[in-house]
């Protein structure tokens, strides 16, 4: 299907209407913008405009419930955020969640992809069941895992015969464990489907040739299978990593950002919505945006791939 071609990084540019080029280039330009313009405008309306406003607000000390004391403070809000250990801790938490979940998801997702690639019976059933975690509301998934691990009302502690006093949500590591677990459960299906698409790219004759040459299973995996799945793995890592870094729903529901589990998005929410501290909050919004950009560029550099090419442009 479509998948097989678009994941190839080196896909040739499509012919496009130019092939029949009935109109001069400027007409095609105009048509192109007429068609794509509204979508671009809507996308920018809700991002560029608020972001500019955030930039402006971030230069004030401005609390919505104390409007009389609004004052211009220049860039000092940024200084406060960047010199605050809470901010860096939050970044650390998000990076930790990102690394752990993406790593685990790649492993489990690959195993699932292998199974789905080989299975001949009940394909639809397995595919439908794997889409359930993907489609389920994140908040619902967070509640399911939160309740499962509750000390008295949950079932996990009972099944594991833990001491009745055990409450995973008591400390940072316990909380972050359940948060990661919920995140992994919810998003592994997405990874496994991408990897499945990648797996179908692997040329069968190459595997057979390697088998004939006496390559072990590990050698086949690392020398043949994984390299030909590079594009799929890369897309999966990039998207999941950025998603994991922006995590918000699960910690909001599970810990309310307690026990040091607040990611940067949690701090932004606290400042903006809870404290209505618009100046400081806006500064954090801007910094959150920049940090996502940095991670995105870092990952793209790491993979040495221009993402828009992957998209098949």
């Amino acid at each position: 299907m479509a998948s097989t071609t678009t994941l190839e990084p080196t896909k040739a540019a499509p012919g496009g209407r130019r092939a029949k080029a009935r109109s001069p280039e400027s007409a095609e330009n105009r048509l192109g913008w007429k068609l794509a313009g509204p979508a671009v405008a809507v996308m920018l309306l809700v991002t560029a405009w608020p972001m500019l406003r955030a930039l402006y607000l971030s230069t004030f000390s401005y609390r919505l419930t104390d409007p009389d004391n609004r004052e211009f403070v220049g860039i000092s809000n940024y200084g406060v955020v960047l010199s605050d250990s809470l901010w860096w801790r939050a970044v650390g938490v998000a990076v930790f969640i990102m690394v752990v979940t993406v790593a685990v998801e790649l492993v489990i997702g690959f195993a699932f992809a292998m199974v789905m690639n080989n299975i001949l019976v009940a394909r639809g059933l397995v595919r439908a069941s794997i889409l359930v975690p993907y489609g389920i509301i994140t908040v619902v998934s967070a509640y399911a895992w939160l309740y499962a691990f509750q000390p008295t009302t949950g079932f996990v502690n009972q099944w594991l015969h833990l001491d009745p006093g055990t409450n995973l949500f008591d400390d940072f590591w316990g909380s972050i464990f359940v948060i990661c677990l919920a995140e992994i459960w919810k998003t592994t299906p997405f990874v496994s489907l991408l990897l499945l698409a990648g797996l179908s790219q692997v040329p069968n004759d190459a595997i057979e040739a390697a088998t004939v040459d006496g390559a072990t299973w590990t050698q086949r995996l690392t020398k043949v299978i994984l390299p030909s799945m590079r594009a799929a793995i890369m897309v999966a890592v990039l998207f999941r990593a950025l998603d994991a870094y922006r995590i918000f729903d699960s910690p909001f529901i599970m810990t309310g950002f307690a026990n040091g589990t607040a990611p940067p998005s949690g701090l932004v929410y606290n400042a903006m919505i809870q404290r209505v501290e618009l100046g400081l909050g806006s500064a954090m919004s801007v910094l959150l945006f920049l940090s996502v950009l940095i991670i995105a560029f870092g990952l793209m550099k790491l993979f040495r791939v221009d993402l828009s090419q992957v998209r098949g442009d």
Partner: peptide, 9 residues
């Protein structure tokens, strides 16, 4: 885009 960065503005 980090969605949370937008909710405030």
């Amino acid at each position: 885009f980090p969605v949370v960065a937008l909710v405030g503005p």
